[in-house]
């Protein structure tokens, strides 16, 4: 990040990874473009990417685009257990004041009796570390018992399993994200099926990482762009929002505009047809479909992002 000094950075999970090739997008936009896409990540990690990778690198991109689905931005708890924990630790997430504010003590109660017990026992011993160590030992024992001619280490065996459970091997229509999501351990991923989170739009700093992302971007002179992806449509190629989601999106769009952010939504785009989708909300990796998606994406966002990316050039292409 420090070396490349990208002008445009895109953040997201497998929704981003299966949609955008940063090199091709850089060709279209004409500016250095970088992607931070981590399968299975959600808003809490996106905040850490913004703070601990982008801001701390000093790269200062002009624009940061965040790819999201429905209520992702105000649902901090989703996927914040298990497989994402090592990355949270690597990015020193628990030490961040914003992290403490969002996941403050009272919320521990919401994660159930066991969460409450664990929270109060953690000063005595470190259950998370113990859990990770014991699980790894169990898995390593299984690997040792099934060497079958290979001397591969545990980490290589884990990688082998990850690849076997990759996106391309999963059943169609599972709505699955866990192909990519399982990058840290072969079997410790969140449930595959994505469901919407709380549908009340709440902008208080205790409720989600959204206000913290907006504040951080303002402080460091970056413009944030939120791009809502079209989830897998029905057989007639339309994606119908629940009334509660429509109201949520209206509130989100107004709030983002008030905060000086950019917002685009491809949900009602009829050119994103069912045939382009594989495995839930992921877009097919076929070249033609990838090109089609990227061209469509660029046509949609260029009128709003070009003035930020190239302040001296006026946006020319109209939105589809």
């Amino acid at each position: 990040m420090k070396q490349q000094k990208p002008v445009w950075v895109l953040i997201g999970n497998s929704m981003l990874n299966t949609r955008i090739d940063p090199a091709q997008l850089a060709t279209l936009s004409g500016v250095p473009t970088k992607k931070i896409g981590k399968g299975g990540s959600q808003s809490a990690l996106w905040f850490l990417f913004l703070k601990k990778i982008i801001v701390e690198s000093g790269a200062r991109p002009a624009l940061v685009t965040i790819f999201f689905r429905d209520t992702d931005l105000t649902w901090p708890e989703i996927r914040m257990s298990g497989m994402n924990e090592p990355l949270v630790k690597e990015l020193d997430g628990h030490a961040q004041p914003e992290w403490k504010q969002v996941f403050e003590e009272a919320k521990v109660l919401e994660s159930g009796a066991l969460g409450w017990i664990k929270h109060h026992l953690s000063p005595l011993f470190a259950p998370d570390e113990l859990n990770a160590t014991m699980r790894r030992q169990i898995q390593n024992r299984a690997f040792r018992a099934t060497r079958l001619g290979t001397e591969a280490a545990g980490s290589e065996r884990r990688m082998e399993l990850n690849q076997r459970f990759g996106l391309e091997h999963l059943r169609r229509d599972l709505g699955s994200d866990f192909g990519e999501a399982s990058s840290s351990t072969a079997i410790a991923s969140d449930p595959g099926v994505y469901e919407d989170g709380p549908m009340t739009f709440d902008v208080s700093p205790e409720a989600s990482f959204l206000p913290h992302m907006l504040k951080l971007a303002k402080e460091h002179g970056m413009v944030l762009h939120f791009h809502r992806i079209k989830r897998k449509p029905d057989a007639d190629h339309l994606r119908r929002d629940l009334p509660a989601i429509s109201s949520y999106m209206e509130a989100l769009a107004i709030h983002l505009k008030e905060q000086g952010c950019l917002f685009t939504d491809e949900t009602n785009d009829p050119s994103l047809v069912l045939d382009m989708y594989v495995d839930g909300d992921h877009i097919s990796s076929q070249d033609e479909i990838q090109k089609q998606y990227l061209a469509n994406f660029w046509a949609r966002v260029s009128p709003v992002v070009t003035p930020i990316l190239k302040p001296s050039v006026n946006a020319s292409s109209p939105a589809p």
């Binding site: 024992r141 299984a142 099934t146 060497r147 079958l148």
Partner: peptide
């Protein structure tokens, strides 16, 4: 190898 490891785990 993988099937065996999953079963033993």
């Amino acid at each position: 190898r993988m099937g065996g490891a999953l079963a033993i785990e």
